[in-house]
Design a protein around this nucleic acid. Structure first.
Length: 572
DNA sequence: GCCGTTTTCGGCCCGACTGTTTTCAGTCG
């Protein structure tokens, strides 16, 4: 949390400096620092203690001091002074699409507008026209921007955006005019939330493709439609951008529009030092302007002496250094996954029978499925009593005799009670192959109590996996207060795996905590927590999170064969 | 404000689109 708070302060400073029309590079320095701090896998307070702040890229003497001040006093004098110069509401203006620092300042200086409500009133009353550079069209754009601002334009969870994007892609690919098609942006990087859906295509008839795109049934409003770019707002409330590019520039455009912005800045800086120029059209040599490539994304990286960096890593959090030193990880692939280690059946709150689940798992080519229904205290989820669990175990054993090349693993999602004790006694848990433990209530415990609670649970020798470890729900609920370093330390010591829960609204662990777990030497399980057959498909989201967390096949429990997995589990 | 096998000072990624302009500023990604 600390990291996020420091990052927020630096971003706020950058906003104010923008309105003050300060040196743009200084502003960028604050933004870059904010981004890098937010992306840290360690606690910034920890770095401060060991005097290692200046090792973070973009943090020099001055910013290190400012961080120290934030950590020790909880405030920053510099920011407080800045706030006296620039009214807070002016910073809000920057969140209105189409309104930037210049316009914000102009409105305040000339008309004294200091709230979005007032701005809206003046715009609708045509009182903005006549200001330098503002005529009717700009006024309309501000009104529309305020509407978008009010709608919140929240980022959409990847689990919702991805199917939406895929349905659009399918419709476009059905056109004979569309040759190649690829996603770009945060969607391609598989970030947990996306701001808009970016699609690139090559086509001999761009106008036709644009027209079809703008006329899709999912489209609510067309924002802009040019020769190479069309932007729309979808009924689901997210923006989608389509760009038509030349085949010879497809790789360059893909690299460029995939981002992230921070990654692009770093790659372009590298290019400049090598006497090259990267753009969305290709890679060019400064000396004679010659184009060295751009049809393939690989061209762009090769020109810098780098291997292709997987999109999931392109956040400028060390991937460029790793690529330069030849130590990019061989990221786990979906096809490496041999089974699902968290699945519910109709024995508790799942929708399907064990037979149905087995059939679906075999269709997916899985070698095993861990049945982990809820335990008894989860009354709302029809949690299993000890007697029911015993009966389920019998059914699992009977079914397993019938299968070939597939088996159920017997398990439970045992509830971790408020005091850290488990919902079933050890002798019951001992009969199971793999035990998944999870918190489902008492989220509001203080940090220390929550940490003790989880540590106690994972110290139990029968617990193999901690499910949805932080309890966060995307956009709905923060994770519980937790000493994550301590949990990881004990997880490593006790050989307990952490789960990457692929359930779209959870994605818990997230990418950063996943990476921290790996760095702490802890194994991970990628599991769907499926309650229906279709939810087994969300594994893709968990794999994406694992990749964003720099995980390789070797870091993940369910890339192991059933035999190895069971051997390992029996040794806890 | 950061950063350096071209530099401790002088650089700092690149281009499209829009709306307002007669050559460009502002915003965005």
């Amino acid at each position: 949390m600390r990291n996020f708070e420091v990052a927020k302060i630096f971003n706020e400073i950058a906003d104010i400096l923008e309105i003050k029309d300060e040196n743009p590079f200084r502003i960028r320095a604050y933004r870059r620092a904010a981004q890098n701090i937010e992306a840290l896998t360690e606690d910034v307070a920890e770095l401060a203690r060991s005097d290692a702040l200046e090792k973070v890229p973009g943090i020099g003497k001055d910013l290190a001091l400012k961080i120290q001040e934030i950590l020790t006093t909880g405030r920053l004098k510099y920011l407080e002074n800045l706030k006296k110069e620039v009214p807070e509401s002016l910073v809000d203006f920057l969140s209105v699409p189409g309104v930037g620092p210049k316009t914000a300042k102009l409105l305040y200086d000339q008309l004294g507008v200091d709230s979005i409500e007032k701005l809206e009133g003046l715009a609708k009353g045509h009182k903005l026209q006549g200001l330098p550079g503002i005529r009717a069209k700009t006024e309309e754009n501000i009104i529309r921007g305020i509407e978008l601002y009010k709608k919140g334009r929240e980022r959409m969870p990847l689990g919702r955006a991805l199917p939406l994007a895929q349905s659009i892609a399918t419709q476009l690919q059905a056109l004979p005019e569309v040759n190649r098609l690829a996603f770009a942006g945060s969607l391609r990087r598989m970030k947990e939330t996306v701001k808009d859906i970016d699609i690139l295509v090559t086509s001999d008839h761009p106008a036709k493709v644009m027209a079809v795109f703008a006329g899709l049934s999912q489209v609510q409003e067309v924002l802009a439609k040019g020769e190479t770019k069309c932007s729309v707002i979808l009924k689901e409330g997210i923006q989608a951008d389509l760009r038509v590019v030349d085949p010879e520039s497809f790789g360059a455009a893909l690299q460029y529009f995939t981002g992230s912005k921070a990654h692009n800045i770093r790659t372009r800086e590298l290019a400049v030092r090598k006497g090259l120029k990267l753009s969305e059209y290709g890679v060019f040599r400064d000396a004679d302007g010659r184009r060295l490539g751009g049809a393939l994304e690989e061209d762009m990286y090769a020109a810098l002496g780098l291997p292709l960096i997987p999109p999931e890593l392109r956040e400028d959090t060390g991937e460029i250094e790793a690529a330069l030193e030849g130590r990019l990880p061989a990221l786990v692939k979906h096809s490496d996954i041999k089974g699902d280690l968290h699945v519910h059946s109709h024995w508790s709150d799942g929708a399907h029978s064990l037979e149905d689940l087995a059939e679906a798992a075999m269709r997916k080519g899985y070698e095993y499925l861990l049945i982990s229904d809820h335990s008894k205290s989860m009354g709302v989820a029809r949690g299993l009593s000890e007697e029911e669990l015993r009966k389920q175990l019998e059914e699992i054993r009977t079914l397993n005799k019938k299968f070939k090349g597939f088996r159920f693993l017997a398990g439970i999602e045992v509830d971790i009670r408020a005091d850290g004790s488990l919902d079933f006694p050890d002798e019951v848990l001992a009969q199971l192959d793999i035990v998944v433990a999870a918190i489902h209530s008492g989220f509001k415990q203080a940090k220390e109590a929550m940490t003790k609670r989880i540590v106690k649970a994972i110290r139990n020798r029968h617990v193999h996996i901690l499910a949805h470890p932080t309890g966060r729900l995307l956009g709905e609920r923060e994770g519980y207060e937790l000493d994550w370093d301590e949990v990881l330390r004990v997880a490593r010591e006790t050989n307990t795996a952490m789960e990457i829960n692929s359930y779209p609204a959870r994605l818990d662990l997230n990418d950063l905590n996943t990476r921290r777990a790996k760095e702490a030497g802890v194994s991970l399980a990628i599991s769907t927590d499926a309650h229906t057959l279709s939810q087994l498909e969300t594994m893709a989201l968990g794999v994406a999170t694992a990749r964003r967390g720099w995980l390789t096949k070797a870091d993940i429990l369910n890339t192991l064969s059933a035999k190895t997995l069971l051997e390992r589990s029996s040794k806890k």
